[in-house]
Every structure is written in structure tokens, then in C-alpha cells.
Design a protein around this nucleic acid. Sequence first.
DNA 1: CTAGGGTTAG
Length: 624
Amino acid sequence: MITKCSLPSVVFNLSHAHFKTQNYNHPLRARAALPDPLSCRLHSCSDADSLVSFLIFALGKCSSASYCEAVHARVLKSASYGHGFIGDQLVSKYVAVGCEKHAEKLFDEIPEKDLVSWNSLISGFSRKGCLAKCLYAFRRMRNEAFMNPNEVTLVSVISSCADVKALDEGRSIHGLSERLGMLMEVKVVNSLVNMYGKCGKLGAACHLFEVMPVRSLVSWNSMIAVYAENESPMEGISCFTLMRRSGIQPDDATLVALLQACESVGSIRLLESIHCVICCRGFYRQMSIMTALSSLYAKTGRLDASHRVFLEIRNPDSIAWTAMLAGYAAHGYGSEAVTLFELMVKKGMMPDHVTFTHLLNACSHSGLVEEGKWYFRTMLELYGVEPTLDHYSCMVDLLGRSGFLEDAYELIKSMAMEPNSGVWGALLGACRIYRNDELGKEAAEHLINLDPSDARNYIVLSNIYSAVGLWKDASEMRALMKENFVARLPGCSYIEHGNKIHQFVVGDRSHPLSHMIYTKLTELIGKIRRAGLTPKTEFVLHDVDEESKEDMINEHCEKLAISFGILVTNPGRTLIIRKNLRICGDCHSFAKMISLIEKRTIIIRDPKRFHHFTDGICSCADYW
DNA sequence: CTAGGGTTAG
């Protein structure tokens, strides 16, 4: 006998008898027996226990709202909410698929709510990143039901605080955990360590880690990740050494955290040594590690190595494809990124919002205006990806950079959400290229409102004013900057050599080889002059850069780093340099000419992208 | 026997 379900599209496909004979606890069997829960038929079950077991199992297989409703309807018909905890399961599933209202309503209908019921609701909200709802449920639990949280409750709430960097709330849960004597629980402390790390409180995280009675593998992993996230990569690596000395075997999370630490150090040598560890210990089978590794090679300037690692991944998932795509995008290979995207879709991968962010970014940096517009239009229709602020930033950048300033502005005005600094920053960037003081002023005003302490916004606007001859406005911007006590971030370049990262600032004379570096620099500038390659103003951004004109352009840190690199490495070796601010127009020309004269490939990474200089041209084609 | 996320990849 077949019973109809309340929703027409949802029919189950297994008889109860069939279901019972199968060992449904075995994941492989279960998958084979129930390939697609949405298209299955449910025969009536004689006893409620098996029905509930089946429903719980089926619920875990699918994640759509209509499916939850179908199961819900079935529960109302022949079982109680308390039966096999089906009510709790439904609550967490409803939250997971985004039906918070259904979840809350159902939750209130559950007659005897125990701790697990509350935890289902709280952890559900936590996972969805709804800190407010999560905390609200947590307070209700304590104030209405007079229940004390257990370790699961605390971990959920603390993780939620970590996700949204809610330090104050996190601290108060920390205090509560202490009062309840829960700081003996490893899991609770681990999530606290993570929370403090995410909130930038390295000291608090370290202290907790040091005093915790028992440290698990996860504790060490969390601590390494916290170091890596808080600009203390070397400490993260020493932490790894200590972990090994305590006899703890690393797992995939350890390696991923270590790779992150490498990224902060910016050391390719270190990255290569960790690559060796990965190969030796057989970690190369783990997708998360390989994805992180591929991404790290790209971020440290070695797109070729990144691609090789990607090719080693057996069945790359959507995240791995996106990582590769992001690499191409950052290095300015727009059409390659587009090809890669089409290929991943052809392979059946489902692109998500991150994929589209990088794809649009790639289009923008390569001037693929039509392609970018098309993907932006179709991402919702074809892939169900709602545009976010990041996507709008990319599109404003794409339109603005290619000269359609008004279109970019119109797009901002058409947005349903409040534009953030990324969006206005993209517009301001375009205004500085095309020296549009009117729109630039509006963008900069928004930006200064959003973050008055960011020096770049004042400088860019001031430079735009200078460029169009509005000297008074320009000096007013400088004055405003002083008034707001904003300090300009000093430009800084890094280059790795001989097991060390060498750092240079403008006019730096602190390096032990300083004298030779300056001699080399003078020699290089002389060579450029003699070759008749005087920098022309062909570069649109010339003399409007983040570091002001007052700086001694000839002693900019990029030039020092390049001179040092040429001085200490063999002829023909590629130089890889990182910079904390965007490269200035003059240094960009300098790098191009040096790449030609010295026959060197120079790769410079700025906060926005990579520049590959070879034979006198840059991969960005002077198009930022 | 025991429902309910400790960390980690784009």
C-alpha cells in the first residue's frame, strides 16, 4: 500500500520491509539504496519506530525546505516530536535550510524540551552565522527553562561568536564557562582559543592554550592557526615543532594551518619544505591540503607550481577549481580564468559566490568587460548565486576601470544593499585613473565616513584634486587627514634570499649591504638612461599613487628590493617581491625596463594583484 | 546504547 505524501513532488521509494532488510547504518549501502531522497516513495510503515528511524536517516540526506516540510508532515501524521528525537532533528534541519521561522515555531511546539532540543536550535543558528538568534535562544534556555549549558551548547555559542568576531559576547561566555567549571572541557577551551584568535586577541588565546589541562590534536591545530591568522607565523611554526615533540601526529588541519603560516611569512623556501612533508607523509591525497597548497603557490607568485599541484588533485571539487581560478585571476590571466571556469562547469562543478567573485575579478583585471557583464547577469539565473557586496565591487571595478564611470555609479545606486568600502573603493580607484574629481569626491566621502583612519582615501582624493589643478581642495584633504590624526602607512617591500626575508622601506639604509644596494641602484638607473628609456607618462597612474610625491621616488622600496635582488642572485634568476601598498607608476616603469635590460623576470605582488615583468612588458598591460 | 560542530582548504 502506498501512501501519498503531503507534497506532490516528494515521494519515497522504499518499502518498509525493504528498508529493514538493508543495513541502513552502513553509509555505502544506504546511498546505494536511496540514491535520490527527493524521488523516493514511502510505503506505509507499520511501526512508528522504524518510520522515525527512516525519517531521521532521510532527513540527513537532503537539505531543501520542501523536504523538511514533507518529513514534518509525516511526523505529524504518525509520530510524536519526542519520538527518537525527530523533533530536535527537524529543528536543526529547518535552521540549516534557512527556515528559521519554521524552526522556531516547531521548537515551541515540542512538549518536553530537553538540553538536546535547545542545543539543536542553538547550534543551528550558530552554524548559519546568526549570532543574535543564537544568543537569544541561549538566554531563553537559561532564563525560561532554567537549564545550564553543557559543552555542546558552549561550543556552539562560542563558535558563533568567533564567526562574526563578537569579542564582547565571547568574553562573557568565557566567564560563564569558567563559573560553570567548564574550562576543564577540552572542546570548550579549543573553541575559546579559536574565538580569541579570530578576534585578534592573540595573548588571550595563548594564555588559554598554556593553562589548559589537556591538549588534544585540535588544540594544537587551533593554536597554530591562531598564530598564522595573527601575523605571528614563525610562532605558529615553533608551535608545530613543540607539537611534534609532544608526540602528537599532525593531520590535515595541521598542514592547512601551517600552509597559512607560510603565506604570512611569504617564504617560498618554507612552503617548499612543507610541500615535502606533505608528499612524504602521504597527505597529497587530501583535497583540503592540496587545495591550500595550490592556492599558496599562487599567492607566493608561483602560478606554474600552483597549476602543477592542481593537476595532481585526483577529482578536484568546486573549492579546488575555485582556488585555481583565483590564482589565474590574481596573476592577471583573465581569458585563462574564463576558460577554466567554463571547463569546471562542463565537469559538473557548481560554482558558488566565491567562484564568481574571482571570475569577475579576473574579467576586470583583463578588461574583459562584456564577459564580466554576462557572468554578472547570469550568475543568478543559471547558478542561483545572489550577488553580494563583493560581486558589486568587482563590477564597479570592471566598469570603472574600463572608463564607464557613470555606469559604475548607476550600478551602485541600483544596489538593494548598502554599499561598503569595497564598492566605493572600486569607484574611487576608477576616478583616480580617469581623474574624475566629482565622482571621486563622493566616493571618498563615503569611504572616509566608513573608515576615517584609512589614509589611502584622503591621499587618492587629494591626488585627484592636484591632477586636475584644484590645489586648494588638495591641500584641504591633507589638512583633514592631519585633523583626523591619520598616519600614512609606510610602503614596504619584501624579498626572500638566503633563508631570510629582507625588508625595505623608502630610502632605507639599514640593510647590511646598503652601500652596495645603492651603488647597484645608481648603476641600474644609469643603464636605463643610457638606453634612452626615460620613463614616459604613458602610465595612467603616473604620479598619482598611494605613496605621495613628496617621497624620494628614486629610493622607493620596490627599487631597493629589485636592486638587492639583482645584486645577490645569479643572472637570469626570477625575482619575487611582495609589497604592502600598491606599486607606484614610476616603480612599475622601472621594473619593466629592468626586466628588459637585465633579462630578468620580476614578479611583484601588491595587495590587489601580481605583476609579471618580462622583456619590458608587464602582465597587467598597464591596466590595473 | 546516547541525539547536539572542538580546529582546517577556494
